[in-house]
Design a protein around this nucleic acid. Structure first.
Lengths: 250, 250
DNA sequence: CCATCGCTTCGCGGGGCGCCGAAGCGTCCC
DNA sequence: GGGACGCTTCGGCGCCCCGCGAAGCGATGG
């Protein structure tokens, strides 16, 4: 009936991340942008032929989505869950590999970074704590929904909650009783959850678009956190303090 | 300086989970008990020689701790973070592998199971929601601490909070300002956090010891969730409802 | 229409490693 | 003390798969 030599789901999925070139590609895609096969080949340090094979495997294994456009193939992470798994596994790996110099790649990344399409780091967990602590987000099965006041507060920061509600729904539960516009995602540097989901995506894109956060350049060549590091601008700090009561001076 | 062919931390750690035999061993260890090398060889379906090599690799890679006792070698997961990574990756793998029959191994495991040494499943997330929602746990940097009332409530359920405070501290932050007796761990079946950490360990062992929860037998031979499934007993349901206001009829 | 570009497929070579059987070593029990 | 047991180490076999270059294919652009 079942093949005793079959890898099993856990091993099969882990194997997709267990190759150095593939891991570098996944790390680059954690920046949230869709990258072309050629860009990923470059960041992985392999030829286009090798990269093509890797991308096909990962897409086939459900980690990536590929979108052909002209003669380019744009690749992005398949889902929030993939991003969460990479985030968690990356945190474990970092702690195992580098107890002596714990945060080689970064104090900046600990303060603010992207986790696929949403905010992570101290700002991410602070945002989670503020929105849930103030009662602007309330728990619903599978995640969080926003209250009326929460919607008003967020709308004032330029976040489009209708767009968040239109986020692709993953049908993991038979019947989803209520709107779930945000979920939790474990933050590996802070060890507490930050917000993920449609709302979190709108927040990240909106605040970056307004210039409240800006992307930081890569540090060196093999920077595993390239494309992910963010910095809060002075205007952003002011706006978040005044609009949400979010003080990030700590 | 740095070897360009070096795997990188993420790939190296993922590789430790990417072998079918190793994955089966890790799944078995998610039941929380320390198992001998021989037991793990059996569950993995390999000879003792092969298992020995696998265990040495995983111990060397920081996933496992080994404790020699007489002519047995007891093996357990190295840390909460390892358990969290396996939990997250396992959830992703299950969702990727089995959209047609989503929960082959079970409704029982979704209701209540062990995640290394703490409770997971619906009971785990309900407990998290209740303790934090009632204000019995309050957020501190890196996790949660209990209030005086929370301590009293938990002590009434037989949970020893002094033992929880003595939990091995992982020094990930330079200075930990306050006691942190619980942390969040993402639940892969419910997609919301449940409680981990010393407090959660005391809760799981205490409630199982009191007969409020009991371990369920394995289903078949290659049961990936063997040793993890739990069931709430009638006494347990009563005690949790009366003692903590935790209603699990849903 | 042809050159270029991005990407894929194919075939090949090589290294890593998963597996086992046999042998060795320490522990436990009679 | 001798035998059984649990585990490790060693040697060897075999497969998987990673990497590349070369060739093919569709899209683009002059």
């Amino acid at each position: 009936m079942t093949d005793p030599t079959a890898p099993g789901p856990l091993a099969a999925t882990a194997a997709l991340m267990a190759d150095p070139a593939r891991a570098r590609m996944l790390a680059a895609l954690m920046g949230g942008e869709a990258l072309t096969a050629g860009e990923l080949a470059r960041v992985a340090g392999v030829t286009a032929a090798t990269a093509s094979g890797h991308l096909a495997r990962m897409a086939d294994g459900g980690l990536l989505l590929v979108h052909a456009q002209g003669r380019h193939r744009y690749v992005r992470l398949a889902s929030e869950e993939v991003a969460a798994a990479i985030e968690t596994l990356g945190g474990l790996a970092a702690r195992i590999a580098a107890p002596p110099r714990p945060w080689k790649h970064g104090e900046a990344a600990r303060a603010a970074r992207l986790c696929w399409n949403h905010l992570a780091g101290r700002i991410g967990v602070a945002l989670h704590a503020r929105l849930t602590g103030a009662g602007w987000l309330v728990p619903v099965p599978g995640g969080w929904d926003a209250t009326t006041e929460g919607r008003a507060r967020l709308a004032a920061t330029g976040v489009d909650l209708d767009a968040a509600a239109r986020a692709p729904r993953v049908a993991t539960h038979r019947c989803v009783a209520r709107a779930c516009i945000a979920r939790d995602c474990m933050d590996w540097s802070e060890r507490r959850p930050h917000l993920a989901g449609g709302l979190a995506r709108e927040i990240a894109t909106g605040w970056i678009g307004r210039g409240w956060l800006r992307r930081l350049p890569a540090e060196g060549d093999g920077d595993i956190l390239a494309r992910r590091r963010l910095a809060l601008t002075p205007e952003g700090a002011r706006a978040l303090r005044d609009g949400l009561g979010l003080d990030l001076s700590a």
